[in-house]
Design a protein around this nucleic acid. Structure first.
Length: 427
RNA sequence: GUGGCCGUAGCUCAUCAGGUAGAGCACCGGAUUGUGGCUCCGGAGGUGGGGGGUUCGAGACCCCUCGGCCACCCCA
């Protein structure tokens, strides 16, 4: 095909799907508002160094998945592969960190991965970040908030919360040495990927999908045994709060996160309904990142959720969030004079009924074809103008759904009142 | 980045020792001069992802390429 196509992995979200997106975004926005979180909007492009410093030099995201390019003045810029780094940068730069902050953002992220269902090169996340709160009550709040969102979206019972603590960077370093020592003795039993990770990022071996590797890990030292006292207490308190709120979760001692900046709490919400892309939401604590990026030492916790995956899950679980019909009222007119009257009357109706979805037929056509459109619009009521109505200064008001009464002609002056009544009747 | 499956009308698919394509749904129109949902009739819509090759002839075979999907990798 010679015509221009969208870039691989960057998809159009079509009118048939946008109602789900809008419903999802509305739910998320109102929930976050109800918890007192404020929206922040950051640029999509940042200096490349922001991401390499925060996500980690040797992570796959930074090494081979970023869309990086040179600006006209020679600076290295990148499309953001995630939102936390930019959010932290914005908070530091704008002096937001003098007081605790509860922030959220939404928007496109970019990673050059092999596309699959639930994984695009341009994808969308909503991120939630909190700054300046070191105590585990905020970890708990974020997790409870996310659980409430699944509940509102109708698939809480389709997802599982996995939880772990990876401790301080010191305790993690000690564990890392122990793990490398153990796995080093069994190097030959490791698969190729894990042998590579033994050099680059040993902790990532913990969540390998290879069954043999997992079996080998049964005899490995446990991260929990290396937790420092403060991290252990933090984790215990978090669990106490989640238990008190009645939220069930699975402790996954092998849950580590791919991004370098996490410490202590890490968690993931996973589902089995989306194939290999089972993680719909993930996050954790990253107390060191703000200082690492040049801000004052500030504790932080946050998470991000993948909107494509949430939309897929909504469809999978048959959510009825999306609006079923396009219209409440559909106006049709046959004849030039009737059209004049219809346009005039509908415009004044719009003054009086601002929340009514009022469609006017466009493009002409026979009475019959206009009626078909009215039916397909899903409208509860059709308004009809023809020669008779024009002559009598009336309009025909026809209920389209069963058990909503007969059609009748009403004087134009009484239209708004009659329409209100008819709509109330059909609800 | 690695391995595999796949690519025919807007959508879901069919056809075929290789002889230049069909159905259902959707769309448009008609079956009463001003009335929808059911039914019937008709119409429009495809350079068979793109390029090259084999052949008298390819959507069907081969190669390349682009794209989708599945697993791995990675991650939301």
């Amino acid at each position: 095909m010679s015509s221009i196509r969208a870039i691989r992995g960057m998809t159009d979200i079509l009118p048939g799907d946008t109602p789900w997106w809008q419903a999802l975004e509305a739910q998320i926005g109102s929930l976050l508002d109800s918890y007192g979180y404020h929206e922040i909007r950051m640029p999509v492009v940042e200096q490349t160094a922001l991401f390499s410093r925060s996500i980690g030099e040797v992570t796959d995201i930074v090494e081979k998945e970023m869309y990086t390019f040179e600006d006209r003045n020679g600076d290295s810029l990148s499309l953001r592969p995630e939102g936390t780094a930019g959010c932290v940068r914005a908070a530091i730069q704008n002096g937001l960190l003098n007081t605790p902050q509860k922030l959220w953002y939404a928007g496109p992220m970019f990673r050059h991965e092999r596309p699959q269902k639930g994984r695009q090169r341009q994808f969308h996340q909503v991120g939630v970040e909190t700054f300046g709160i070191a105590t585990p009550d905020i970890d708990a709040e974020l997790i409870l908030l996310s659980a409430r969102l699944w509940q509102r979206l109708g698939f809480l019972d389709e997802v599982e919360l996995q939880l772990n603590s990876i401790g301080s960077s010191e305790s993690r370093a000690a564990y890392r040495d122990a793990l490398v020592a153990y796995l080093g003795q069994h190097r030959d039993a490791l698969d190729e990927d894990s042998q590579r990770r033994l050099e680059t990022n040993p902790l990532r071996i913990l969540d390998s999908k290879n069954p043999d590797t997992q079996a080998l890990l049964d005899g490995a030292p446990s991260l929990a045994d290396f937790l420092d006292e403060d991290s252990a207490a933090h984790f215990a308190r978090l669990r106490e709060l989640l238990d008190a709120a009645g939220l069930s979760y699975t402790i996954n001692p092998r849950l580590v996160r791919g991004l370098d900046y996490y410490n202590r709490t890490v968690f993931e919400w996973v589902t089995t309904r989306l194939g290999a892309q089972g993680t719909i939401c993930a996050g954790g604590r990253y107390d060191g990142l703000v200082a690492q990026l040049g801000g004052k030492d500030t504790p932080a916790v946050g998470f991000a959720m993948g909107l494509e995956r949430l939309v897929l899950l909504l469809a999978e679980t048959g959510s009825n969030l999306a609006r079923p019909a396009d219209a409440d009222v559909y106006a049709i007119a046959v004849g030039d004079a009737a059209q004049v009257q219809a346009v005039k009357s509908v415009e004044s109706l719009r003054d009086e009924m601002q929340n009514c979805r009022l469609l006017v037929h466009n493009g002409g056509g026979s009475f019959k074809s206009q009626m078909k459109k009215a039916d397909k619009s899903g409208a509860a009521v059709a308004l009809i103008w023809g020669e008779d109505e024009v002559a009598g200064q009336t309009v025909t008001l026809k209920p389209l759904r069963q058990s909503a009464g007969e059609q009748r002609q009403v004087p134009l002056a009484e239209l708004a009142g009659a329409l209100h009544a008819a709509l109330a009747e059909s609800n």
